[in-house]
């Protein structure tokens, strides 16, 4: 999701902007990132997503978002961002018994 990939094309139409595609499958509870595509606008992006990413009966819902609108963490920040949580296993609720009828845990 670097800035370069998300750049909008100029009026000469060199290239359509990039969109990221999220699809929710029939059994899935959440939308899952499946890939990206190029389109002239949001509406076209949604249709392209339908044409490119749901051809095998995968989805029941699609989100598209302009790649340029995504703010992402940087690999340079990996350690300060994620390393501190690496030794805090007690943050997982694994010390409790979860009743069988609690779904989606």
């Amino acid at each position: 999701m670097s800035g370069q990939a998300g750049e909008r094309s100029d009026a000469s139409g060199a290239q359509w902007p990039l969109y990221e595609v999220f699809v929710r499958s029939k059994r899935g509870l959440n939308h899952v990132h499946v890939g990206s595509l190029r389109a002239a606008d949001e509406r076209m992006a949604l249709r392209h997503a339908r044409d490119v990413y749901t051809r095998r009966n995968e989805g029941v819902s699609i989100w598209v978002v302009a790649a340029a609108d995504i703010t992402a963490s940087s690999p340079d920040e990996k350690d300060p961002f994620f390393a501190p949580s690496g030794d805090k296993v007690y943050r997982h609720p694994t010390f409790y018994d979860i009743p069988d009828d609690v779904p989606h845990m």
């Binding site: 499958s25 029939k26 009966n57 995968e58 989805g59």
Partner: peptide
């Protein structure tokens, strides 16, 4: 092939 959701189901 339920586990492979990317295949789609319900054909």
């Amino acid at each position: 092939n339920d586990a492979r959701w990317a295949f789609g189901t319900g054909f």
